[in-house]
Amino acid sequence: MHELSIVQSLIDAVLDRTGGRAVTGVNLRIGPLSGVLPDALRFCFDVASAGTTLAGARLRIDEPQGRGLCRTCGNDFALTDMFLLCPCGSADVEVVTGRELKLVSVEVA
């Protein structure tokens, strides 16, 4: 499961930036089309952060809605899965939001 290696690189990035300070919170933004499941990430975070300065940190995951823009009819609509299909029938859809997989900020004590 790739969430574990993603969490590992998340923890590495936070440790690089925070030195030895205790991390109390980690804020992420994970879109529904990113390929990463927030619940799996939370689970992996608890396991992988144990014994580090991130142990017990509050993981806050902002989950923005996915939005697509149809290049055929110009419609801007909600995307709930990776099947990029505009209600007009066109599959020529640009993903505007939803692919976010971001470490936004960390809170240190």
Partner: peptide
């Protein structure tokens, strides 16, 4: 000194992709 105790709580902006290292 890395002990962290003398600091006020702080929010550090990161703004990077989770897969940035890879």
């Amino acid at each position: 000194h890395g002990d962290g105790h003398s600091h006020a709580p702080e929010l550090i902006s990161m703004e990077q992709n989770l897969l940035a290292k890879n």
